[in-house]
Design a protein around this nucleic acid. Structure first.
Lengths: 107, 107
DNA sequence: TTGTTGGTTGGCAAAATAACCAACTAACGA
DNA sequence: TCGTTAGTTGGTTATTTTGCCAACCAACAA
């Protein structure tokens, strides 16, 4: 694998990595229904606000979210809606796993 | 977020996490063109075979790959082709980032 | 100006990942 | 049986990620 190819996959991995955390997946899912401020997300997730803020900046830095400050609050929204397509496929994987789990259990 | 919801996002994150590495992304991409044995992937990736083997088991354990031993070799293949849809969206994010980077540079 | 609210940043400790080497197993051939 | 090849597993070390607390910043109100 040459250097250019390696860089291509590293760039892709940075985007995927940004999604690779339960709270961050929740955020993406929630923002698919419209923008939310940090405090709303903190209430839903139930973690320290600094933790939520860091998750949001991971997603923003990856190019998945945009932020906008209005008054005291900062609102985040999805920048790339196609990111939602992930969920369908991931659910498919999980359901296939469940079926396989059941089949293995029967053996 | 209740416990059941948390578990849902944890399950999804496990699948996404399995993809969140440059070599594993490369493997998924390569297997989209057909099954490959471990040694072929090792040659392409250029890492120790034990490293490649561990990457493959991460993807298999997540339910993304299937493996089959034939003779001395173990062949891996994609179990869930829809995983490829990820790439299109990820490329879109990267291109949007590049445009934004150019725009920021112009400021 | 002072206080308050909403959010970000720095720092730290704990946990998870990653890569290699070494040891091992399985399948095959001589 | 013995050696070889293909791959997996265990162990170790280095790096990254995570989450909280504390300190800080920005916008607004009193």
């Amino acid at each position: 694998m040459d250097n250019k190819t390696r860089q291509k996959y590293e760039a892709r991995a940075r985007v995927i990595k940004a999604m690779a955390h339960p709270s961050r997946l929740f955020i993406v899912d929630e923002l698919s229904r419209g923008e939310r401020c940090v405090c709303e997300l903190r209430d839903m997730i139930g973690a320290d606000i600094s933790t939520v803020s860091k998750h949001l900046s991971v997603l923003r830095d990856a190019g998945i979210l945009d932020d906008e400050k209005r008054g005291l609050q900062v609102f985040y929204r999805l920048r790339v809606p196609c990111i939602l397509n992930f969920f369908g496929c991931v659910e498919g994987v999980l359901q296939a796993n469940a079926r396989r789990g059941a089949a293995v259990a029967k053996q």
